[in-house]
Protein backbone atom coordinates (compact mmCIF):
# COMPACT_ATOMS: atom_id res chain seq x y z
CA UNK A 1 0.00 0.00 0.00
CA UNK A 2 1.33 3.46 -0.83
CA UNK A 3 1.92 5.93 1.98
CA UNK A 4 -0.88 8.02 0.58
CA UNK A 5 -3.34 5.12 0.73
CA UNK A 6 -2.08 4.10 4.15
CA UNK A 7 -2.52 7.59 5.57
CA UNK A 8 -5.95 8.13 4.06
CA UNK A 9 -7.12 4.73 5.29
CA UNK A 10 -5.91 5.48 8.80
CA UNK A 11 -7.55 8.89 8.75
CA UNK A 12 -10.85 7.48 7.50
CA UNK A 13 -10.79 4.82 10.16
CA UNK A 14 -10.00 7.24 12.96
CA UNK A 15 -11.79 10.46 12.10
CA UNK A 16 -14.92 11.16 14.15
CA UNK A 17 -18.28 10.57 12.50
CA UNK A 18 -19.93 13.57 14.15
CA UNK A 19 -21.51 15.99 11.66
CA UNK A 20 -19.55 19.09 12.87
CA UNK A 21 -21.22 21.76 10.71
CA UNK A 22 -19.21 24.78 9.59
CA UNK A 23 -20.02 27.96 11.52
CA UNK A 24 -21.70 31.03 10.14
CA UNK A 25 -19.24 33.91 10.13
CA UNK A 26 -21.69 36.60 9.07
CA UNK A 27 -21.97 37.74 12.67
CA UNK A 28 -18.39 39.03 12.50
CA UNK A 29 -19.19 41.42 9.68
CA UNK A 30 -19.09 44.74 11.49
CA UNK A 31 -18.92 47.94 9.55
CA UNK A 32 -16.47 50.62 10.65
CA UNK A 33 -17.32 54.32 10.52
CA UNK A 34 -14.02 55.50 9.15
CA UNK A 35 -12.00 52.66 7.67
CA UNK A 36 -9.25 54.99 6.53
CA UNK A 37 -8.73 56.42 10.01
CA UNK A 38 -8.52 52.92 11.49
CA UNK A 39 -6.19 51.69 8.77
CA UNK A 40 -3.94 54.69 9.34
CA UNK A 41 -3.78 54.21 13.12
CA UNK A 42 -3.15 50.47 12.92
CA UNK A 43 -0.53 50.55 10.16
CA UNK A 44 1.29 53.46 11.80
CA UNK A 45 1.23 51.50 15.06
CA UNK A 46 3.03 48.55 13.47
CA UNK A 47 5.75 50.60 11.85
CA UNK A 48 4.22 51.54 8.51
CA UNK A 49 3.90 55.04 7.14
CA UNK A 50 0.61 56.31 5.72
CA UNK A 51 0.51 59.40 3.53
CA UNK A 52 -2.43 60.94 1.75
CA UNK A 53 -1.63 62.24 -1.71
CA UNK A 54 -3.61 64.43 -4.09
CA UNK A 55 -2.60 62.56 -7.21
CA UNK A 56 -0.03 60.08 -8.44
CA UNK A 57 2.32 62.84 -9.60
CA UNK A 58 2.52 64.08 -6.01
CA UNK A 59 3.21 60.52 -4.90
CA UNK A 60 6.07 60.14 -7.38
CA UNK A 61 7.53 63.41 -6.26
CA UNK A 62 7.42 62.38 -2.63
CA UNK A 63 9.12 59.05 -3.30
CA UNK A 64 11.83 60.57 -5.52
CA UNK A 65 12.54 63.10 -2.84
CA UNK A 66 12.74 60.59 0.01
CA UNK A 67 14.47 57.60 -1.58
CA UNK A 68 17.82 57.45 -3.31
CA UNK A 69 19.16 54.65 -5.42
CA UNK A 70 17.42 52.26 -7.72
CA UNK A 71 13.65 52.54 -7.75
CA UNK A 72 11.54 50.04 -9.67
CA UNK A 73 7.81 50.01 -10.10
CA UNK A 74 4.84 48.55 -11.89
CA UNK A 75 3.50 52.10 -12.03
CA UNK A 76 4.48 54.87 -14.39
CA UNK A 77 7.27 57.30 -13.58
CA UNK A 78 9.93 54.80 -12.48
CA UNK A 79 12.13 52.11 -13.97
CA UNK A 80 9.72 49.32 -14.92
CA UNK A 81 9.95 46.36 -12.57
CA UNK A 82 11.76 43.66 -14.59
CA UNK A 83 9.97 40.38 -15.10
CA UNK A 84 13.09 38.24 -15.42
CA UNK A 85 15.30 36.71 -12.75
CA UNK A 86 14.34 37.91 -9.23
CA UNK A 87 18.04 37.98 -8.29
CA UNK A 88 18.27 41.05 -10.53
CA UNK A 89 16.30 42.92 -7.85
CA UNK A 90 18.99 42.46 -5.20
CA UNK A 91 20.18 46.06 -5.47
CA UNK A 92 16.75 47.69 -5.54
CA UNK A 93 16.38 50.45 -2.99
CA UNK A 94 12.66 51.00 -3.38
CA UNK A 95 9.91 49.08 -5.09
CA UNK A 96 6.61 50.82 -5.76
CA UNK A 97 3.51 48.69 -6.23
CA UNK A 98 -0.23 49.15 -6.49
CA UNK A 99 -2.27 47.47 -3.75
CA UNK A 100 -5.50 45.77 -4.70
CA UNK A 101 -7.11 46.74 -1.41
CA UNK A 102 -6.32 47.13 2.27
CA UNK A 103 -7.79 46.00 5.57
CA UNK A 104 -8.58 48.52 8.30
CA UNK A 105 -8.46 46.16 11.29
CA UNK A 106 -4.85 45.14 10.79
CA UNK A 107 -3.25 47.60 8.41
CA UNK A 108 -2.55 44.96 5.77
CA UNK A 109 -2.59 45.52 2.03
CA UNK A 110 -3.44 42.70 -0.40
CA UNK A 111 -1.54 42.17 -3.59
CA UNK A 112 -1.35 39.24 -6.00
CA UNK A 113 1.16 38.14 -8.60
CA UNK A 114 -0.47 40.11 -11.42
CA UNK A 115 0.15 43.38 -9.59
CA UNK A 116 3.52 42.19 -8.26
CA UNK A 117 4.81 41.14 -11.65
CA UNK A 118 7.63 39.38 -9.83
CA UNK A 119 6.91 37.72 -6.45
CA UNK A 120 10.20 38.75 -4.91
CA UNK A 121 9.42 42.40 -5.68
CA UNK A 122 7.58 42.88 -2.41
CA UNK A 123 10.32 41.31 -0.32
CA UNK A 124 13.80 41.90 -1.66
CA UNK A 125 13.93 45.72 -1.90
CA UNK A 126 15.29 47.77 0.95
CA UNK A 127 12.05 49.75 1.05
CA UNK A 128 8.51 49.21 -0.14
CA UNK A 129 5.94 51.77 -1.23
CA UNK A 130 2.37 50.95 -2.11
CA UNK A 131 -0.26 53.00 -3.84
CA UNK A 132 -3.73 52.50 -2.42
CA UNK A 133 -7.05 54.04 -3.39
CA UNK A 134 -8.88 55.36 -0.37
CA UNK A 135 -12.05 53.65 -1.50
CA UNK A 136 -10.25 50.31 -1.45
CA UNK A 137 -10.15 49.79 2.31
CA UNK A 138 -12.36 47.10 3.83
CA UNK A 139 -13.11 46.84 7.56
CA UNK A 140 -12.10 43.28 8.50
CA UNK A 141 -10.50 40.09 7.22
CA UNK A 142 -13.95 38.65 6.62
CA UNK A 143 -14.67 41.48 4.21
CA UNK A 144 -11.21 40.95 2.75
CA UNK A 145 -11.81 37.32 1.85
CA UNK A 146 -15.26 38.12 0.53
CA UNK A 147 -13.59 40.63 -1.74
CA UNK A 148 -10.94 38.15 -2.82
CA UNK A 149 -13.68 35.60 -3.43
CA UNK A 150 -12.55 32.87 -5.76
CA UNK A 151 -9.98 35.08 -7.47
CA UNK A 152 -7.60 33.02 -9.58
CA UNK A 153 -4.14 34.14 -8.49
CA UNK A 154 -0.88 32.20 -8.49
CA UNK A 155 0.43 33.99 -5.43
CA UNK A 156 -1.12 36.55 -3.13
CA UNK A 157 0.06 38.20 0.03
CA UNK A 158 -1.17 40.40 2.83
CA UNK A 159 1.58 42.79 3.83
CA UNK A 160 1.25 44.74 7.07
CA UNK A 161 4.19 47.05 7.62
CA UNK A 162 7.92 46.60 7.23
CA UNK A 163 9.68 43.28 7.73
CA UNK A 164 10.40 42.88 11.40
CA UNK A 165 11.68 40.62 14.15
CA UNK A 166 11.66 40.55 17.92
CA UNK A 167 13.64 37.35 18.24
CA UNK A 168 16.37 38.94 20.32
CA UNK A 169 14.92 39.42 23.78
CA UNK A 170 11.62 40.60 22.32
CA UNK A 171 13.24 43.86 21.19
CA UNK A 172 11.43 44.99 18.07
CA UNK A 173 13.72 45.61 15.11
CA UNK A 174 12.34 46.79 11.76
CA UNK A 175 14.00 45.43 8.64
CA UNK A 176 14.64 41.76 9.35
CA UNK A 177 15.13 40.34 5.85
CA UNK A 178 12.68 42.28 3.77
CA UNK A 179 11.89 45.99 3.40
CA UNK A 180 12.99 48.23 6.23
CA UNK A 181 10.10 50.62 5.68
CA UNK A 182 6.66 50.45 4.14
CA UNK A 183 5.00 53.59 2.86
CA UNK A 184 1.38 53.52 1.81
CA UNK A 185 0.38 56.40 -0.44
CA UNK A 186 -3.35 56.85 -0.16
CA UNK A 187 -5.00 58.35 -3.16
CA UNK A 188 -8.24 60.14 -2.43
CA UNK A 189 -10.26 60.01 -5.59
Amino acid sequence: MSSRAEILAAVRKNQPSSPAPLPDTQKFWHEVDDVYAQFNIILSGIGGKVLEIKNWEAGQEYLKEHFNGRIVSTLEGFEPLPESDPHALADVELCVLQAQFAVAENGAIWITNSALRQRAAAFIPQHLAVLLKKSDIVPTMHHAYARIGSADYDFGVFIAGPSKTADIEQSLVLGAHGPRTMTVLVLNE
Binding site: V103, N106, A108, M141, Y153, F155, G156, F158, A160, S163
Partner: peptide, 9 residues
Protein backbone atom coordinates in the same frame (compact mmCIF):
# COMPACT_ATOMS: atom_id res chain seq x y z
CA UNK B 1 0.06 41.79 16.52
CA UNK B 2 -3.12 42.41 14.51
CA UNK B 3 -1.65 40.19 11.77
CA UNK B 4 1.81 38.94 10.89
CA UNK B 5 3.69 41.22 8.51
CA UNK B 6 3.39 38.67 5.72
CA UNK B 7 0.56 36.20 5.10
CA UNK B 8 1.64 34.63 1.85
CA UNK B 9 -0.77 32.55 -0.21
Amino acid sequence: QPITTYSSH
